[in-house]
Amino acid sequence: MSAAEKAALRESGTPGETSAAASASGPRSQRLPNPRFLRSELWLIFGRRRNWAGLAVLASVPLIIAIAVKINNPGSAGGEFNVFSSITDNGLFVALAALTVEIQLFLPIAVASISSDAIAGEANLGTLRYLLAVPVLRSRMLAVKFTAIVIFTFVAILLVAGVGMLIGLALFGGGSMVSLSGTSLSFGTGVWRILLICGYLAIELSALSAIGLFVSSLTEQPIGAAIAVIIIMIMSFILDQIPPLDWLHPYLFTHHWYGFTEFLRDPVSFGGPVRDGVLNAAAYIAVCYSAAWARFSGRDVTN
C-alpha cells in the first residue's frame, strides 16, 4: 500500500464527520433518523431471488382466477352474492377474489417466512454479530427489521390487489360495483374500498409479522422459526373452528381476518368488526414486539 492510498483512506471521512465520530458525547448524526439501514434491509428482502419467486407466486393467483373465469364463465349463481360470479360484471372483483383466496394461506406463509428470517436468519449466517459490533443498537435493529417486514406485508398485499385489478379491468372492464348491502358503488369508490381492504389485511398480517419477529428472536434456525409461526397460525385457525371455545374466538388473531368484507357494505361501518380486528392486531403487535425486545435485548450472541 502506497502512502497516497493510506492518505486517501485517512481523508475519506469529511473533517466534520470524523470529529463527530470521535467525540465522546456521540455523533450528532445519531439524533437524526437515518434511512440507510432501513433501505439496506428492504434491499435485502426485495433484492433476494427467493422472495421474487414468492411474490411471483402471489401475483399468479389473480391471473389464474381471471383467466379461468374468462375461459369458463361460472354464471350468476341465482341472487346469492358470490365474488367469483361477480367478476364478469366488474373486473375489480378479481382483486377481491384473489385476496380472499390468498389470505387463507399464501399471504400468511409469505409473511411468516420473511418475519421469521429477521433475527434468526442473521444469527444463522453469523452476520448478526457483525451488525451488533458495528454497532447497531439492538432496539434499533428490531425496529428497522419490523418496519421492513411491515412494508413487505403491504407490498405483497398491494401486489395481489394491483395485479388483480389490472387483469380484471383488462378482461372484464370496470363499471359500478354492487355492495353487500345491495347498493351500487361507483368505480372510484370500488377502487377505494379495495385499497381499504388491503390496508386492513396488512394490519391483520402485521400481527402475524410481530409473532414471527418474536419467534425469530428465540432461535438461530430461520426455517424452524417459519414452521413454528405457521403452526401457531394454523392452531389459531383450528381453535377458531371449535364452537365450545367461542369465548376465546375474539382473542384469536386469525378470527378477524375475514372482517374485511365489512368494507363491501354501504356505508362502511368502521366500528364493530373492523374496529375489533384492528384493536386485536394492535394488541398482538404490542405484546409480541415487546416480547421480542425483551428476549433480543438480553440475548447472548454466540454464533
Binding site: T14, A21, P27, S29, R36, L131, V134
Partner: peptide
C-alpha cells in the same frame, strides 16, 4: 455494514 453505522457519512 456501512449503512448500519450511524457515525458513517453516507456521502463518502
Amino acid at each position: 455494514l456501512d449503512a448500519a453505522d450511524r457515525t458513517a457519512d453516507p456521502a463518502t
